[in-house]
Structure formats: structure tokens, C-alpha cells
Amino acid sequence: MSEQSTPALVDWDLAASTAARLAPAGPRLAPAEIAVAVEDIRAKAEASVDLVHRITGLEAARDLRDSQILVVDRAGWAKANTQGFSVMMDPALRALKERLAQGMSPAGARVSSAVAGAQMGSILAFLSSKVLGQYEPFSGYRTGGPGAGSAGRLLLVAPNIVEVERQLNVEPDDFRLWVCLHEQTHRVQFAAAPWLGDHMMAQIEQLSGSFVENAGSFLERATRAVVSLREGKSEEGASGSLMELLQSPEQKAIMSGLTGIMSLLEGHANVVMDAVDASVVPSVKTIRQRFSSRGKDRGVLEKFFRRLLGLDAKMRQYTDGARFVRAVVDEVGMEGFNQVWERAGNLPTEEEIHDPQAWLRRMGFPGAA
């Protein structure tokens, strides 16, 4: 059976439709209320760019017009992410397809593709109600590889923003601007470091290749992962997410580099988000307090899925990265910190995220302890 006649290993269209069908219902809004909320969130996103510029000093944030801003519903977010995942997973899926093409019938391949698509859709359905916004940097990669096409696109999930502001009982104007500050900071990061998307994509391709090369030991690692999750523990101090438990040593090393990058990006966005005071977001203290406390009421099932998917590890990236950024800025100012965006060699490692002084020493800042 030729590669051309073999269906894709994941039916991404089915994943998107499955997510749209299974996504939890959002807040009850009349059509007119939806239209008003969408326009207001878009306006807050536009207004936040100047604030990001003032806080970070990054010239890339001045009158930023490099990428799309999309205010979407849960189904729209899921569909956008099937497109993003199809790009990031493409190297691994192509390699696996070549391996499997000779031993799988067209009918078997179609069934496998549909099952994988349905499973991916189920995961995205769960996540679609948890995400307030997301900068998707790999949009242009669908049109010809690294550096091709548009920059990226900023997704703001309107029903989730409205739902959370209602749950927290906070002022919508303030909460929407606060959220947009975080998400627009991600957009500015990639504009300030135009090499960053290619750098991350190269790491992802390397990780994908490693998964394919180590496919033979996957079943053994998967068995250990299931046992570890069932017993509530993980190997070598890992946080216990499924992805961590399935990784080989080589994959963990690559993931460590990506974790350092993600911690930097999320932490920096949180620092910007929290840099505003009551003159910009009048109820910012109330928002911070209530938003930080919202995870305490999660049910057992949601906590399990969050652990399985590594979402709690992502939350730690926010905290660890913000601590790194604040420590560096306190030491050398925002201008000194902004050297992280100049080249890949300036990015902190995962170890340096937890030891800002090590990054300062490596970067040659005088007086670093």
C-alpha cells in the first residue's frame, strides 16, 4: 500500500467535530450579548498592546500588527488547535505512517485514524472549557515550513472569559483587560524574537523523531506509566503527567529545554499581567485573589484529568517562570532581562529558571552572585 493511499494517522477533521460535539455548554447568553462580548474582548485585546509596550519596553509591541486576533467559541478554539497539533505532530506522524504503511490495510488505517481523531477530539473538548486565551505561533507553518506564511494568531475564548468573570463575580471590563494583557504578551514575545517559533519547532521535531526512534520501548514505558498513575506516584520525581511518564531519557532532556522556554514565556506574561495597578485595572487586587483561589473547588475527576494531561505542571510553569523574571528584573532591570529575546543562546535552561543567578552569571552580568 503506497503512502499516498494511506489515510492520515489522525483524522483531524473528526477531532475538531468531536470536540465541538462534546465540549461543555458555555454560559447562557443571548445573541446580542454574545456580539457585545466579542467586540468588547477584541477592543480590550487592542488596548492591551500599548500597555505591554509600556511595561516591557519591547519595541515589537509598538503598534503591533503582525498577526491575527481571533475571538472564538469553544469549537473554534478546538478547531484551531487541531490545526496547530497537525503541524507540531506532522514529523512524527509522517515517520510513523511510513513504518506502518506496509503492514496496515486501507480499512485498518481508516479505523485507526478515526479512533485517534475521536480520542484527540475528546481531549480537546475537555480543554476547550479551561482555556481563556492562547497565542498559536505556528499558523504560518501550514503554508510551507519554518518562517512561511503569517506570523501567528491570538485566540481569545469568549465563553470561557465570560464564564470565569461570572464565577469570580468580578468587573468584566477589568477582567477582560487583565486576561488580554497576558495573552498579548505572548504575541509580543514572538514578535520580539522572530527566531523563537523556528527554534521551538526544531525542538518539537527533534522530540517527535525521538518518539519514533524509541517506539519499540513505548509499550513497556506505557505500562509503567499506567501503574505509576494508578498508584499516585511517578518516576524520578516527575509530576506524574502521562507525557512525563512516557518519556525516554533523551525525550526528557528535550522536554527540559522546552519546559525552560515555556516557563519563561508564561512567567513573563504573568509578570506583565500583574504589573498593572488600580489606575489601569481598578479591581486588579480582587481579580488576582479570586483567580488564584479558583482551583480549590475542582472535583476529583477534573483533578485526575489535569494531572493526566500535565495541566498542573503548566500552572507551576507560571509560578516558576514569574519568579525567574522578577528576580532578573530586580537585579538588572527590564532592559537587562530583555536580552532573553535576542537569540536562542540567551534563553534560560530549566535549571536556570530555578536559579536566576546562574543565568545572570552565564550572561556575564557584573556582580551576579
Rank of each mutant, 00 (worst) to 15 (best):
L242S: 02
P249Y: 04
L219T: 03
S208P: 06
L245C: 06
I204L: 08
S217I: 12
M201P: 04
R230E: 08
F211L: 13
K233F: 13
M201T: 08
G237W: 04
V212C: 04
E250N: 05
E244H: 05
T223G: 07
R230L: 10
Q203Y: 09
A222N: 05
V212M: 08
K233G: 08
S217R: 14
R224E: 07
E236G: 01
S234Q: 06
A215D: 12
M243R: 05
E236M: 11
A225G: 09
E231P: 02
E231V: 14
F211E: 14
S241A: 04
G232S: 04
E231K: 15
A202H: 04
G232R: 03
G237D: 04
M243G: 03
T223N: 03
E236H: 14
Q247P: 00
E220G: 09
V226A: 15
Q206E: 07
L246H: 15
A222V: 01
V212K: 14
E213G: 11
E205L: 02
R221W: 11
S210E: 13
L207I: 08
M201V: 05
S208Q: 13
G237T: 06
S248C: 01
A215P: 00
A225N: 02
I204P: 00
S217E: 12
G209S: 10
L207M: 13
A238T: 11
G240P: 09
V226T: 08
A222I: 01
Q206C: 00
T223Y: 08
M201R: 14
G232C: 05
R221K: 14
S248I: 02
L229I: 13
G216Q: 14
G232Q: 01
G209W: 02
E220L: 10
L207K: 06
M201F: 15
S217C: 05
E236N: 08
G216E: 15
F218D: 05
E213D: 15
F211H: 11
G237L: 11
S239K: 06
S210L: 09
E231I: 07
S210R: 13
S248Q: 09
L207P: 08
L245N: 10
E205H: 10
S228W: 04
E250L: 05
S228T: 07
V227K: 08
F218H: 09
E205Y: 01
V212L: 11
E231Q: 12
